[in-house]
Amino acid sequence: MKESLQVKVREQLGSRQSRRLRASGLVPAILYGHGEKSISLTIPDSQVKHAVQHGARLVDLSGDVTETALIRQVQWDAFGLEVLHLDLSRVSADETVEVVLPIHLKGTAAGTREGGVIEHVKHEVRILCPVVSLPEHLDMNINALHLNQEMTLGQLTLPAGAKLLADADEIVVHCVKVKSEADLAAAGAGGAEPEVIVKKKAEAAAEA
């Protein structure tokens, strides 16, 4: 689904001005692409959060700039609470874009009834996809996943005209046996004190 963002052209540039904008509830952004001049923008914080939290890729810009854009990058603060900056790139409907999409698992794996645990190894995938068929996420059905089996990127159902930009043999999810408490304790067991790395005298003399 396309989200719409009300944008204003930003005249004041620089980190100090950006900080002031953020304090007043606006998010600094930049729009670039198609060989045209890049434009610095501001977008209301609430609209940005809504678009980002809903996993929107394509956004309709209105206000000072009327265009369709792709969210290229989102910069977060250290706690992941606030969006600091947004990178938008111009796109047209007939274009193909490179995007990173999240992979969502659907269903319940048969392996969980066989004493296994689902391990979601790969959460995101890079694909080349036409703008018109760009989804918010990719789904993978894991109903047929048994114990000690895995599903790979090649088993993903891609949108029409999309191409995978990663190794198709890469594991997305697998069902493995649960590690017992004893195994975990054994893995963590060590000596009373770590070994100290010391250069031996002969080695030091050889180096000199």
Partner: peptide
């Protein structure tokens, strides 16, 4: 058994200070 390094260069370290926020390892 509690965790600890297997090998270290020095047994003892200075206290140091914790400055700023985490810029790595700050996302799931």
């Amino acid at each position: 058994m509690a965790l600890m390094p297997k090998r270290v260069k020095h047994r003892k370290s200075q206290r140091g200070r914790i400055k700023g926020n985490a810029t790595r390892g700050n996302r799931v």
